[in-house]
Write a protein that binds this DNA or RNA. Structure first.
Length: 396
RNA sequence: GGAGGAGUGCCGGAGUGGCCAAUCGGAGCAGACUGUAAAUCUGCCGCUCGGAAGGGCUUCACAGGUUCGAAUCCUGUCUCCUCCA
């Protein structure tokens, strides 16, 4: 039932793992043949999962394949506080209503990566609904301000006279209590979760439970190549994005990111991974080709082979060969909108008349393959207007 | 309860009476180039008229006021932060 192949286990604990606490302990647990409860929590404050989350989810999936049990915690309470991790400002509270809606769509995406049949979904409200003030006081009394300030982001904010709300201190405590409630053996999370994860260990042992081990995955750098992937920074590739978009976004990552993306987001074996590293270093391969391979694999994983090939094809035609895409959006050519500028505006290709004019003057507009710099250029039905690198509209 | 500080364009953040639609950085958009929607370089980046030069309009929390003239000064309001208690 439970796979205890030491080689396999060794591999899982190495590739794409930032840190394990306590490594030796976790190894023993995995070798024991016991079915482990793998905790993963999420806050339904943002309903979208991106590739950054996928790094951890893939790890979960791999452990699942050894036969272990994933316990997914829906943080319907913590979401209302907002995770302070990595934040430099206080988060606004969400309504219980919003949280419910987000959780649903979040899970749909979650199970694109993690095996649903082997996952137990638990809502925090199962145990927090009955929490009364006494419980809260008992829970908070176990921790000190010094402990909280040991945490870097709190400390930073404190030093800089930035506000920290009391509820934010509650966040790690609630998350820790989840581990108690579901008797977690291992908790998964990104490196930015370290503090929260450690509090879970602490609380468990205070209560006389064997503390969970912690497996942290590295933070994936976003498509901008500098900051961690995050929705609010806009440098993300969403798991639910359509295939073409995923493909395109992958193609736009800086070359430097290629290796880590391969390492964290694909299943290619370690040997092949090393080869890629070498090839990148001595420039014996065109990074573009590697990027295509990466994009293919990711789209295939999230959709299927056919979608991946289609997306690649689309990329090659429209971007590399600058061909017209097969289906082009249409826009009605009204009396008022026969001039190029008006049409661009009406078709939603520019946000204002000034903006439309700017595009034309900057040589960003082509009509039937000809660059046009005259804003008053008269369009006729059938003309295809191209704005920028990849936006096309046909006049009707 | 008291003292002090802050609110500027998508974000960060200059600017303390005219030279300000407002420096700079980031994001974004575009062009060139390229082995790529990478990197690099260049331009743009409130609305509007104009091919352009240039003009008009609405902006610097909100509402009033002083002034020939205000993001900048005054009054009030709202919001936020810090410190003391």
């Amino acid at each position: 039932m439970i796979d205890i192949n030491p080689k396999q286990i060794e591999k899982l604990l190495k590739r794409g793992v930032a840190e394990v606490i306590v490594e030796e302990d976790l190894k023993q647990k995995l070798l024991s043949g016991k079915k482990l409860r793998l905790k993963e929590g999420f806050d339904p404050s943002f309903p979208d999962i991106h590739l950054g989350h996928m790094v951890g989810l893939r790890k979960l999936r791999q452990f699942q394949e050894l036969g272990h049990q994933v316990v997914l915690i829906v943080g319907d309470w913590t979401a209302q506080i907002g995770d302070p991790s990595g934040q430099s400002v206080t988060r606004p509270m969400l309504s219980a209503e919003q949280v419910k809606n987000n959780a649903q769509s979040y899970m749909e995406q979650f199970f694109k990566v993690v095996d649903k049949s082997n996952t137990e979904v638990r809502w925090q409200s199962e145990w927090f609904a009955d929490f009364d003030l006494g419980d809260v006081i008992r829970l908070t009394s176990k921790f000190t301000l010094a402990q909280m300030l040991a945490r870097e982001d709190f400390n930073h904010r404190y030093q800089n006279n930035q506000p920290i709300s009391i509820t934010e201190f509650l966040y790690p405590l609630l998350q820790a209590y989840d581990s108690v409630a579901i008797k977690a053996d291992v908790e998964f999370g990104g490196m930015d979760q370290k503090f929260n994860l450690l509090v879970g260990r602490e609380l468990q042992s205070m209560i006389g439970m064997k503390p969970q081990d912690i497996l942290m995955t590295p933070l994936l750098v976003g498509t901008d190549g500098t900051k961690k992937m995050s929705k609010s920074l806009g440098n993300y590739v969403g798991i639910a994005d359509p295939p073409r978009e995923i493909f395109g976004k992958i193609m736009s990552i800086p070359d430097d990111l290629l290796f880590s993306y391969y390492e964290l987001l694909t299943d290619i074996d370690d040997k092949e991974l090393m080869n890629i590293g070498v090839a990148l270093n001595n420039e014996s391969i065109n990074p573009m080709e590697l990027k295509k391979g990466l994009a293919l694999q990711i789209v295939e994983f999230l959709y299927d082979n056919q979608a991946a090939l289609e997306a690649e094809n689309h990329f090659r035609r429209t971007i590399q060969e600058k061909e017209l895409p097969q289906e082009v959006e249409k826009c009605q050519l009204g009396n008022q909108t026969t001039s190029l500028r008006e049409f661009i505006l009406a078709a939603g290709l520019a946000k204002s008349r000034t903006d439309a004019k700017r595009l034309v003057i900057q040589k960003a507009v082509e009509v039937d393959g000809q660059t046009i710099t005259d804003v008053n250029f008269k369009l006729k039905p059938g003309d295809v207007v191209k704005v920028g690198k990849r936006r096309y509209v046909r006049c009707v």
